[in-house]
């Protein structure tokens, strides 16, 4: 399952560092939105980058922070949008979806709030994408014999984080889907730019659909 020429000590330390990042991201004491943003930025972005540069001594472009293959990026992005459409179709069958998106009800009344929300989602996606797809997936794709295992590994890690936060609802399902599709896009395009972009587009489309389906008068 694992490649033969791996540095096991490095693997162990890096895995521990990844878990430590997640734990610190989840539990670092913060008070107020400023501190929460700083904490997220630090443990999901800064610390991984510094770790890559200083500890692993590798190029950050090897971890998705590059242009990659734009053709594959857009192709897989488009394919992911098809799955998003199917997901929206699935959501429309359930009446109780709206209760997991109550904040959308208020946002649906004010366009500027909606724009602010989606912009903040975009920024958040970059951070999350970089950690799970960039740091975790691109590291482990060099560890596994079958590289695509890394897609599922980051997916499972993301799911675990969601479970820990206790968010077992339709929002959870949305993020899980996006996590998997982003992993596939990033894996094939070798860049998190496309995965982040299409995740962002997907979440906009999904939330617009929910607002249309459940909160439009």
């Amino acid at each position: 399952m694992l490649s033969t020429n791996i540095n096991k000590k490095e693997l162990f330390v890096t895995s521990a560092a990844m878990l430590a990042c997640l734990v610190l991201f989840y539990s670092f004491p913060t008070k107020g939105s400023f501190q929460e943003i700083m904490s997220s930025l630090t443990f999901l972005f800064l610390v991984p980058i510094l770790y890559i540069k200083l500890i692993l001594k590798k190029n950050v472009s090897d971890f998705g922070l590059g242009m990659g293959d734009y053709k594959k990026g857009f192709l897989w992005g488009a394919i992911s949008l098809v799955f998003v459409a199917l997901f929206i179709l699935l959501l429309s069958r359930f009446e109780n979806v709206s209760k997991d998106y109550r904040d959308l009800f208020y946002v649906s009344k004010y366009f500027d709030l909606f724009v602010m929300r989606e912009i903040s989602f975009g920024i958040a996606f970059v951070l999350v994408d970089f950690f799970f797809r960039g740091f975790v997936m691109f590291y482990f794709q060099n560890i596994f014999q079958k590289k695509y295992f890394a897609i599922f590994l980051q997916f499972v890690m993301f799911l675990a984080l969601l479970l820990l936060s206790g968010k077992l609802n339709w929002s959870f399902a949305t993020q899980a889907l996006l996590s998997l599709s982003a992993g596939i896009i990033a894996f094939n395009s070798k860049s998190i730019l496309y995965s982040s972009f299409f995740s962002w587009i997907s979440i906009i489309v999904i939330e617009l659909s929910i607002m249309k389906l459940f909160f439009s008068n």
Binding site: T14, L24, L46, V47, L50, Y51, L54, I55
Partner: peptide
């Protein structure tokens, strides 16, 4: 400080 420690220990 946490970040520094984070980097120092693996190193």
């Amino acid at each position: 400080l946490t970040t520094l420690m984070f980097l120092f220990i693996p190193s």
